[in-house]
């Protein structure tokens, strides 16, 4: 089963927003193919009727009441920004 499937590395890397060189693509896709081949062993298990575990110790209704807590100062919020102007973060023009 694993030999048939090959990760579409171009599609997946783009989805993950990571540029890869051709050499990286080649190396990664073969490594990932072998990892994917390995994890496919889960298919052996019959899990019909088994509830998925999303949290190890699930509880319901964990919330806070609507009471305002303190904010970061604008200076602190932006101190790590790669580019800022007028207290806002500068990004290349995006087409909306």
């Amino acid at each position: 089963m694993s030999e048939e499937k090959h990760i579409d590395i171009d599609y997946t890397a783009k989805l993950a927003r990571i540029n890869l060189t051709d050499a990286e693509k080649e190396k990664l896709s073969s490594q990932l193919d072998s990892i994917i081949g390995y994890v496919e062993k889960l298919e052996e298990l019959d899990t019909s009727g088994v509830e998925p575990t999303a949290h190890p110790h699930p509880v319901y209704n964990v919330w806070q009441e609507d009471v305002v807590a303190s904010e970061l100062s604008i200076e602190e919020a932006l101190k790590n920004a790669p580019a800022q102007r007028d207290n806002m973060i500068v990004v290349p023009k995006v087409v909306d």
Partner: peptide
């Protein structure tokens, strides 16, 4: 988050 929600504040004021 319990930081204030609002409109018309200085940019990036209502953040944590």
């Amino acid at each position: 988050s319990r930081v204030r929600a609002g409109y018309g504040h200085e940019p990036n004021k209502l953040v944590d």
